[in-house]
Design a protein around this nucleic acid. Structure first.
Lengths: 217, 217
DNA sequence: TCAAATCGATACGTAGCGTATCATAATAAA
DNA sequence: TTTATTATGATACGCTACGTATCGATTTGA
């Protein structure tokens, strides 16, 4: 049936410190080289054959480790892929500082679509896809990917409010959903392309509003 | 590896006419009762155990047919589920006629979230999820679900343009993505609830625009 | 020195896939 | 009516990958 192992048990505790760990327990330490090799093999295979064709046994073979070792470090395929994905993708969405918050957002959204149009975007899509049948992966995606980005985004919105570029009574989550959900929707459904023009249209519509669109063009 | 069977081969040809088929070929006809039983068992199991736990063999057992028969009618699990899903969900998104197109859209969006918050919504989510690793299912979802709804939506937008409620130079796909993508995004990510208030906030933001939001409240 | 935890390797049972085969039943054309 | 053709349910099959268990060997702290 479904996997029951937890994401936040031995994993987080022992894995978060990937440097020298000061545990008091006896016994042989986990080999950080094996750990890294597994993550790198996972990233490589993800880009080459995609999430669905990736198997734990394949990762083990490419990383030169026993598959037992992988199961000691990660409870399942989804959590392994999540770690590999975050290590490679997390630092790719910085907001610029152009002087205008709306412009900052617009430019950052163009960075986002660059990533979403790359092999990493395919991984994002498959992770969201697999989240639909894997509650722990879904939780990991929300807290370790989305929430991190939301925190950054809300800081930008706060700056915009302080500068009177954005009304102070706005619901940040509603605004951010309106801005970013269309990007992910096109990533997932593929009914239309993710272009910079699309970002411009989106930001123009949301800032100007439907009622005034014909006045402003 | 992946399944190669086509959605549009013997399937569409023989299945679209679920009534009495006027084929010139000899031999025994497909049993329409078995076909219907399979679809109904699939719908039932979908709501009970979800897409990921649903197996072809389970459907066969519940429908009282051999699994061979299922494989003769559908190339894989995804296409079977798609058919069962469409049969039950397709007619659930009508636009009302309130006199105001914006209000029509707002009310229809509230119907949409009703469905998305029901077990059918879970099925939508898992279908989009499975689409990430199944190209044929993705294509079926686009053409048989999304495109049908887009056609209806564009007719409403056209009415709005004729009534001068909506500017004529608007890009319909951009506007529809901005309106509906946030609903599906919340369905898929579950970072925030899908409420009627959310629909109101969304429509208000998009019609009024960020720049004027503080003027209008 | 000894207990504990790791490592890679290997074997195992399980689930569900999609296919093949079978005798039987239904149907259209000859 | 006969014959060719196709569908049906049942069953068996090979396959892949899962996740677990076990093994001797190795590393480490107490």
């Amino acid at each position: 049936m479904s996997r029951k192992s937890s994401f936040n048990q031995e994993i987080i505790i022992k894995e978060d410190k990937s440097g020298p760990v000061d545990t008091k327990t006896p016994g042989r330490k986990r080999c950080p080289v094996a750990h890294q090799n597994i993550l790198q093999a996972t990233s490589k295979l993800l880009n080459e054959i995609g999430f669905s064709n990736l198997t734990i046994e394949g990762v083990a073979a490419h990383a030169g480790v026993g598959k037992t070792t992988i199961y000691r470090h990660w409870p399942n395929k989804a959590s392994l892929v999540m770690d590999a994905f975050l290590a490679e993708t997390a630092p790719q969405f910085p907001y610029p500082d152009t002087g205008s918050v709306i412009r900052d957002i617009r430019e950052q959204m163009k960075l986002v679509i660059k990533v979403l149009n790359s092999p990493n975007g395919k991984t994002v899509a498959t992770l969201i896809g697999a989240s639909q049948t894997d509650k722990e992966l879904a939780e990991a995606f929300r807290t370790r990917f989305l929430a991190v980005r939301r925190t950054e985004s809300k800081a930008i919105l706060k700056k915009g409010i302080e500068r009177n570029e954005i009304p102070s009574n706005i619901d940040a989550d509603v605004l951010l959903d309106t801005l970013y959900a269309p990007l992910y929707f096109r990533l997932l459904i593929k009914h239309a392309p993710l272009t910079e023009i699309f970002v411009d249209q989106l930001v123009n519509l949301i800032t100007t509003g439907l009622n005034r669109t014909n006045l402003s063009t």
